[in-house]
Amino acid sequence: MDINNYLYLSAILFTIGAVGVVVRRNAIVVFMCIELMLNAGNLALVTFSRINGTLDGQVVAFFTMVVAACEVVVGLAIIVTIYRSRRSASIDDASLLKR
């Protein structure tokens, strides 16, 4: 199989994630879309690693997973806290920064 297909898949996944972030309002869904973009990036890294025959890309992919795990912990905690105080998980309701 052509190895470039992995790159196409990665691009498609990233695009789905990006569109999801921009168009969806539910914080959980937006959050999942971000994870999708991160994993699309991971897939591209691993693919390039394979193409170049080095391990650098795979190592970076591990780092990304670690960071993503941390981010999930912090991000979910924020979303839960916001939901508790505002009874809503819509990110458009939490537009307090403009003031």
Partner: peptide, 14 residues
């Protein structure tokens, strides 16, 4: 330009 909507910021970043 600062609306406070996260999605518009994300759009701009994109």
């Amino acid at each position: 330009s600062q609306t406070g909507f996260v999605r518009s910021y994300a759009m701009l970043i994109l």
